[in-house]
Design a protein around this nucleic acid. Structure first.
Lengths: 210, 210
DNA sequence: CAATTTTTTGACCGATTGGACAAACGTTAG
DNA sequence: CTAACGTTTGTCCAATCGGTCAAAAAATTG
C-alpha cells in the first residue's frame, strides 16, 4: 500500500526523515536552495540519492518541510513578549532570547535569511499573514507601554526590526563578525559582549527620561 | 592580437563590460551566484551568451569584478567617519549615510549579504585584511570619543555591527519589512521612519548622561 | 518456513549548465 | 577593392542536475 511518499508512519520512516532534514538544514543554510544538490544532502545524510527521494519525492519538499518547521521556532521568542511583566524587562528578555537563538540556531537563521534575500518566494504568504498579524499584535503591546510612559515614544515597528537585525546579524554575518573581531576578540565571548552592548543600547535608548 | 579577454582598451569594450556588470548585479543579487546562469545575465545584458563570454571568460570573473567594485563603495561611508566634527554628529551622519546606501543601492547590499551568508569564500582575505584594518582604525576613533566623555562607554566593535545590521536590514530584508509594514505603512516613507527611529535609538542610547 | 511489504540501490534519462570553437559579420586602414 | 582586426553568433560538448524505474535486499508478517 501507500505508493506515494511515506508519511512517517513507521518508526524507521520518522527517523530517516529526521536525518534527512538535519542534513538538508546544514546544506541548504550554507549553499542556499539552488546552490544545494540532492546528492550533497544525500551524502550528508549517509544514504543514496534514490533512497533520499524515497522519503522526499522532490527537493522542494525537503525545503518546504524545513521552512515550515523553522518558522514555528522563529516566531516563538516574539510570541513570548508579553504584557505581563515590566516593559523594560520584557524587552530585555526578548533581545536576550533572540540573541540566544542566533547563537544556538545559526543554520536556521541563515536558511531564513537566504529565503528572504531571494525575495521570499516560498513564504511570502506566511510573512503577510501569520508574521504580520503577530507583529501587529505586539506593536499594540509596545504602543501601550509607550502611552503609559514606561517606554519612550518611538516607532514600534522599526524597534522590532532593529531587534531582529542586530541579533540575527550575529548568525547571518558570523563570518564577517569573526573576521573583523580577529582571533582574540572573536572567540565564544563575542556573544556575551554583544548581549551586553545590545542591552545597553536598547535600554538606554528606550528608557523614558526621568 | 590580444587573444585573451579584452582589457577594456577600446571604448566599446568598456561600455559592454559596464552593461554586463549592471546586468550581472541585477541577476546575482536576486538569485545568488550559483542560482544565476550566464544565459540570464546575457539576456539581461541584451546579448548572446558567447558574446558575453567574449568580454568575461568565466562566470566567476564577472562576480569577482563585481565584488571588488562593490567593496570600495561599501567601505566609503565608514571611511568618512572622522575625528573632525562633533562625535554625536559624526555618528548620526554615518548612520544616515549607511541607510541611504541601503535605500539607493539595495542590490549591492544583497550581493554582499549573499556572499557573507555563504561563508564569504571569495572575499575572506578582504574581510580579514582591508575591512578589519579600517574597523580597527575607526574603533580607535570611537574609543577616543568615549574616553573624552562625548560618547557613553560601550563596545565600539559591536556598535559598528549594530549600525551595519540595522541599516542593511532595510535592503537585505526589504521583502519582509514591506510585508510586515503592510501596503499603507510600507511605502517609500519607510526609510524616513527608519531614519528617525535609528537616530533616536543610537543618539539616546549613546548620549552621555548629563 | 514462505509470502508480502518496506527499504535500498545501480543504472539510466532528459534538461540545464558553463564553456569552447570556428565561422560569420562588421569596421577600419591602406 | 583587400587585408586585418574586433565583434557576434550558431553549434556543439562534457559535466552536472533533478528525478525515474526496475530490481535487489531487508524487514515484517503469517
Amino acid at each position: 500500500m501507500e505508493g506515494s511518499t511515506p508519511r512517517g508512519r513507521t518508526r524507521i520512516q520518522k527517523e530517516k526523515r529526521e536525518v534527512i532534514l538535519e542534513a538538508a538544514l546544514e546544506v541548504f543554510s550554507t549553499n542556499g536552495f539552488r546552490g544545494s544538490t540532492i546528492d550533497q544532502i544525500a551524502e550528508a545524510a549517509g544514504m543514496s540519492k534514490p533512497n533520499l527521494l524515497y522519503y522526499f519525492r522532490r527537493k522542494e519538499d525537503i525545503h518546504e518541510t524545513l521552512m515550515h518547521r523553522l518558522l514555528e521556532t522563529w516566531l516563538a521568542p516574539l510570541k513570548e513578549l508579553d504584557n505581563i511583566g515590566d516593559p523594560m524587562t520584557e524587552l530585555r528578555g526578548y533581545i536576550r532570547r533572540k540573541l540566544e537563538m542566533a547563537r544556538d540556531f545559526p543554520r536556521e537563521s541563515r536558511l531564513f535569511a537566504n529565503e528572504i534575500l531571494q525575495g521570499a518566494p516560498r513564504i511570502m504568504a506566511m510573512l503577510e499573514g501569520e508574521l504580520k498579524t503577530l507583529v501587529d499584535e505586539k506593536v499594540d503591546v509596545i504602543k501601550g507601554w509607550m502611552r503609559s510612559g514606561k517606554v519612550v515614544q518611538a516607532d514600534p515597528w522599526h524597534l522590532i526590526f532593529a531587534i531582529w537585525a542586530t541579533t540575527q546579524h550575529y548568525a547571518d554575518f558570523d563570518v564577517q563578525v569573526r573576521a573583523v573581531l580577529g582571533p582574540d576578540r572573536g572567540g565564544e565571548g563575542r556573544f556575551e559582549d554583544a548581549a551586553r552592548f545590545l542591552e545597553q543600547l536598547f535600554i538606554e535608548g528606550l528608557r523614558p527620561k526621568s
